[in-house]
């Protein structure tokens, strides 16, 4: 049988060229409620791919389908060229999952969490021990190895979750809102670790409603709203397409912002009116502000900033990401 050995090699080559994850017309509905309304995306190997959107956009439902713990209602989903409907177990063996709420084993210590998790993946005890030591070092929790999970801080728990998700040396790491609920310092520690994983060439798939997180970590992302993908691209290309280089934020005080929409529109390419402020999209924020002041229009406060994914989202959906 000379061809027998060629099969797997061929599969590997094609799946390297194609996506690690491909979704076509993917739908998830619960009874009458449509959580994901037909989305297409492809995640390439070694890529950090993000799903950006507000709560209820369908991010978590999508992640659960990718994690093979929620069967798609209709549409096609493939991971490593396999269908989760039939090969869920094989796929899950190659995934690392960091859920939104840390689902750590509270009856066990930090290191035991890692050790038993390794056993679920059929990893030998000896191998589990060496991996656990290594991973606790990676997430900077070696000194907490024998602590119970409960007294750890939110950031520490999330790091244990990440260490645990890496125990099977996964090809794809799935992170559902990895830094939601963490303080700024803990978020930066986490981003640093995730960045290192990305540099190692691991494929990361993450959801977030923080634009700075998406900008820092994602090579490419899709913006989701109401169960659909409304835009797709790199953070830079999305900003270039949907926003201007700079944003001038103007505050005129309660109830008076609306009076100045027309004035603002004259000095920028576009104006968004928010309850507390006006956003003027412009290539030169300082210049636009100077022009306004020359016309004797003086806001209570003014701020010039670089435009962000938040602006992209606002443009696409008419709403802010975090309400």
């Amino acid at each position: 049988m000379p061809n027998r050995n060629l099969g797997p090699i061929f599969v590997t080559v094609t799946s390297m060229r194609e996506g690690v994850i491909t979704a076509t017309g993917l739908v998830k509905s619960f009874g009458g409620l449509v959580a994901v309304g037909g989305i297409d995306f492809t995640v390439m190997p070694g890529e950090a791919f993000g799903f950006l959107g507000p709560n209820g956009a369908g991010k978590t439902s999508t992640m659960r389908m990718i994690g093979c713990v929620s069967p798609p209602t209709t549409g096609d989903l493939q991971l490593f060229g396999l269908d989760p409907r039939h090969d869920g177990r094989t796929i899950r063996a190659r995934l690392g999952v960091v859920p939104q709420m840390d689902q750590l084993d509270n009856e066990l210590t930090v290191v035991e969490n890692l050790l038993i998790y390794a056993r679920y993946f059929d990893i030998s005890r000896r191998e589990a021990r060496s991996r656990a030591t290594e991973l606790l070092e990676f997430v900077q929790l070696s000194e907490r190895a024998n602590s119970k999970v409960e007294p750890l801080s939110g950031g520490q728990k999330r790091r244990v979750s990440i260490a645990r998700s890496l125990i099977n040396d996964p090809d794809v790491l799935i992170l559902d809102e990895p830094t939601t609920g963490l303080d700024p310092q803990a978020r930066h520690v986490l981003w640093d670790r995730l960045y290192q994983l990305k540099e190692e060439g691991r494929t990361l798939v993450l959801t977030t409603h923080y634009m700075d997180e998406a900008e820092q970590l994602c090579d490419r992302l899709v913006v989701m709203d109401g169960g659909r993908i409304v835009a797709e691209g790199s953070p830079q290309s999305l900003i270039a397409t949907y926003a201007t280089r700079e944003v001038l934020e103007l505050r005129f005080g309660r109830g008076r912002n609306a009076d100045h929409v027309a004035d603002a529109a004259e000095v920028g390419e576009r104006v968004e009116e928010l309850p507390d402020r006006l956003l003027v999209y412009t290539t030169d924020g300082e210049g636009s502000l100077a022009t306004l002041r020359n016309r004797n229009i003086v806001p209570d406060s003014a701020l010039v900033r670089r435009s962000s994914l938040e602006d992209v989202f606002l443009r696409l959906t008419g709403r802010t990401l975090v309400d």
Binding site: R92, Q103, D105, Y120, N168
Partner: peptide, 8 residues
Amino acid sequence: DALLTTPL
């Protein structure tokens, strides 16, 4: 929930 994300 955590166990079901593994091959179990």
